[in-house]
């Protein structure tokens, strides 16, 4: 195998079909960027979910004088006895890992701290506006229904509030984005495969004289096909590298904005970014090589 010969054949081939090569590279780059973007969002969602699953809580608000729900209107504010009953009922459940009582005073202070940068909010809310409550940590956050239905309607309880209900909407949006990006990516990848097929067919046609002679003088099939396969692989690789640029940009320009909405660290690690890039590059090269190979079998009879 003479490397120099093969390399010069590839170079000639890529140059001869320059416009097609560019089309292939662009298509591959876009599809891989979408694919990588989808993976990136997916990883981000997984990471945030893990974070939330550890922290998600059920908040049980107790009745106060200003509660508006029916049960509270009928029975008045919760008594200490009712608080104790609710707390022991919660603590006795297997699904519950911990219960913390927050008095109205503590809840108000906590609120003030959280919205310290929003003066209007802080001024609008007074102590006692936020009822005293129990923060319930669950062993498995998905067990929310079981726990809430168990204590729902117990005397003194105003309402039960689940963090996850809000989070699910947010995650649902991100899941939708992932699915959309991956769908478009796969359609694009299919288009890229067809384009590569066409490019290789053109290349095989424009080099039919060379390949015909190679066949006659007994060059092995592998040797005849190698330049075409490598051409596809190189186009795929270049597309993949461009896509990697997009992926890195997406990570630092778009996903890093998510951080602004959170108080904790949700930044994706460099490791997961590299793995996304790695998967995209491998997919690009593999797709192009396989597409070239399948086309060659049809158009380069050996």
């Amino acid at each position: 195998m003479r490397a120099q010969f093969v390399l010069s054949e590839i170079w000639i081939g890529l140059r001869r079909n320059l416009t097609m090569t560019v089309a292939v590279i662009v298509t591959v780059a876009i599809s891989l960027a979408l694919f990588g973007g989808g993976l990136l969002i997916n990883q981000q969602v997984t990471q945030m979910r893990q974070y939330w699953d550890e922290r998600v809580t059920l908040t049980v608000y107790m009745c106060t004088e200003i509660s508006t729900s029916n049960t509270c209107q009928e029975n008045g504010p919760a008594t200490d006895q009712q608080r104790q009953d609710v707390q022991s009922a919660l603590e006795s459940m297997d699904e519950v890992s911990s219960v913390e009582y927050i008095s109205a005073e503590d809840a108000f202070q906590d609120f003030q701290e959280r919205f310290a940068n929003n003066e209007a909010m802080v001024e609008a809310v007074r102590e006692g506006d936020i009822p005293d409550n129990f923060r319930v940590q669950l062993v498995d956050p998905s067990q929310y229904e079981a726990v809430s239905s168990n204590i729902e309607g117990s005397p003194g309880i105003d309402s039960i509030y689940d963090d996850q209900a809000v989070l699910e909407q947010f995650f649902g949006l991100l899941d939708g984005l992932t699915a959309a990006a991956l769908t478009v990516a796969f359609v694009q990848l299919a288009a890229a495969a067809l384009l590569i097929g066409n490019t290789v067919r053109l290349a095989a046609y424009s080099r039919r004289k060379e390949t015909g002679i190679m066949r006659l003088v007994g060059a092995s099939n592998f040797y005849i096909q190698l330049p075409f396969l490598l051409e596809g692989a190189i186009a795929g690789l270049i597309g993949g590298i461009i896509a990697s640029g997009f992926i890195v940009a997406a990570r630092f320009l778009l996903l890093s904005r998510i951080q602004e909405w959170f108080q904790f660290d949700v930044t994706l690690s460099t490791g997961s970014l590299l793995s996304v890039i790695g998967v995209s590059l491998i997919l690009g090269v593999l797709l192009c090589t396989v597409a070239s190979f399948l086309t060659l079998r049809r158009y380069l009879r050996v």
């Binding site: 195998m1 010969f5 002679i213 003088v217 007994g218 060059a219 040797y223 005849i224």
Partner: peptide, 8 residues
């Protein structure tokens, strides 16, 4: 030479 190159 092509005939020899392509058979390595």
């Amino acid at each position: 030479a092509f005939a020899l190159e392509v058979i390595g």
